[in-house]
């Protein structure tokens, strides 16, 4: 059974790019446009991994991650931040919140697949 990955990004083209890379490798992709929408997708279904942007209108990625970490069903779900943000303070903040990887856009598909395969449980 293919693993479910939730992609949270306000840019539709970016979600599509991630989606092409992941579905091509056999993953099942669920998309959300910001943190608020992403929280509605966390409705008890099994999510194996979350890929989230940081800067988004509505609910930003950092707030979204804090919510996920307080949810008993998803607090151990691995999270990859995929963002243009490259400041060390922000990366440190992500680490403290418990995210597992921080990828700076633009990313290469193989880089994403490498990160996903390292974090997702077989």
């Amino acid at each position: 059974m293919s693993k479910n990955i939730l992609i949270v990004d306000d840019s539709m083209s970016l979600r599509q790019v991630v989606s092409i890379a992941l579905t091509g490798a056999g993953y099942n992709v669920i998309e959300a446009g910001d943190g608020n929408e992403a929280l509605t997708k966390l409705n008890g279904d099994k999510i194996h991994l979350i890929v989230s942007d940081v800067n988004m209108p509505g609910m930003d990625g950092i707030t979204f991650v804090s919510h996920v970490k307080q949810d008993a069903n998803y607090k151990f779900t691995p999270i990859i931040m995929l963002t243009t943000e490259s400041q060390q303070e922000m990366i440190q903040k992500g680490k403290e919140l418990g995210v597992k990887a921080w990828l700076v856009k633009p990313f290469k598909p193989e880089q994403m697949l490498d990160a996903v395969s390292k974090l997702i449980l077989p």
Partner: peptide, 24 residues
Amino acid sequence: TMAEERKNHSKEFGENGSGGGDAY
């Protein structure tokens, strides 16, 4: 949020020169 923006803002900017693709 981006290294390029900070670079455009300040001539002295030298670190965090990420053009993307970094992974932590």
